[in-house]
Each structure stands twice: as structure tokens, then as C-alpha cells.
């Protein structure tokens, strides 16, 4: 087994996906965003409640691989208490960190960013972030 594989599936990702942090179905959420990857069938609903301009509740539910679950879990945690304008910056920042080397990233992001070294797996880590970005872009463009 290559070291890179060990690094990808390290404890920080496996623990996060197993912890089910932020994994909660909420049909009564104010906003439900769908993140779907037709290539592998990964499908999440991202549930958000806003108070004014600020995210006050965020969770996700659905089916995905270890990487997409860990990354989505991180996302719903990260976006809490952020305003829409902050959200856009935060998402851009994370998408950048997930797609290229960043020394100063937190451990989980560094681990997730290794996915880009494996064929077809970068999209697992950016799936939900991209879906939220598209939603916010459409919302602010209106």
C-alpha cells in the first residue's frame, strides 16, 4: 500500500465520517440544497436555516463515500453563524484549499485535499461545497 493512500484514509477522515457530526435530516428546514454526483450516485440534502442574513442551523443527510461525508460534515460545521457575504468567501477559500496544497490548512482539510491525487476522487470532497456555492450564486444574482 502506498503511503499516499494511508494519508488519504487517515483517522481524521474516518473518524469524522463515522461520527455523523452534522448528519441530521430536517424536512422543516428553511432551505434544502441538493448535492448530487451522477457519476457515483452520491446524493446529499443540505439543510439550512437563516436568521436574517446569518446561518443559524446547518446539517446534511444522504448517501456518500467517506470523503464526501467527511467533507460535507466539515462544511455544515464551518458555515454556522456566517452571513451570506462571508459564506461566499469561506466557500471559495475551502474550495481552493481542497483543490491545491495549502500548508496552513487544518488537518482534516489537508487530508481531504489529498483526494486530488486519486483518479476521480477530488469531486467527492468538493461536491457539497460546489452545490452550496451554486445555490448562493443564484441567490445573490437574483
Amino acid at each position: 500500500m502506498r503511503d499516499s493512500l494511508k494519508k488519504l484514509y487517515q483517522q481524521v477522515i474516518l473518524e469524522r465520517q463515522k461520527s455523523n457530526a452534522g448528519f441530521k435530516k430536517r424536512d422543516d428546514a428553511e432551505i434544502i440544497i441538493k448535492a448530487y454526483n451522477p457519476l457515483c450516485g452520491d446524493k446529499f440534502n443540505i439543510y439550512l436555516d437563516f436568521e436574517g442574513d446569518k446561518v443559524v442551523q446547518a446539517s446534511y443527510h444522504g448517501y456518500g463515500c467517506a470523503l464526501s461525508k467527511a467533507s460535507t460534515s466539515l462544511m455544515v460545521e464551518t458555515i454556522m453563524n456566517k452571513s451570506v457575504s462571508e459564506l461566499i468567501l469561506v466557500i471559495e477559500d475551502y474550495l481552493k484549499k481542497l483543490r491545491q496544497d495549502h500548508e496552513h490548512s487544518e488537518e482534516l482539510v489537508k487530508a481531504l485535499a489529498l483526494a486530488r491525487n486519486f483518479p476521480g476522487r477530488e469531486q467527492c470532497t468538493v461536491l457539497s461545497w460546489d452545490a452550496l456555492k451554486t445555490y448562493l450564486k443564484n441567490k445573490t444574482d437574483k
Binding site: R2, L5, Y9, C40, D42, C65, A66, F118, P119, R121
Partner: peptide, 29 residues
Amino acid sequence: GIHPHDIATILGDQGIAVRAGHHCCQPLM
């Protein structure tokens, strides 16, 4: 309960090529 893409990545790393996912058969899934 391990996601097929996680399985395929780890197998791929060991030189084993398999397919993972819905295999272009979503109604069958």
C-alpha cells in the same frame, strides 16, 4: 456498508481495477 468508490480507490492503489457505482443501471439500482 463501505462506499463502492472508497473500495475502488483502495483496490486501485493495489493495482486492481474494478468498477464502482451504478454501472449505468440506475433503474436496476
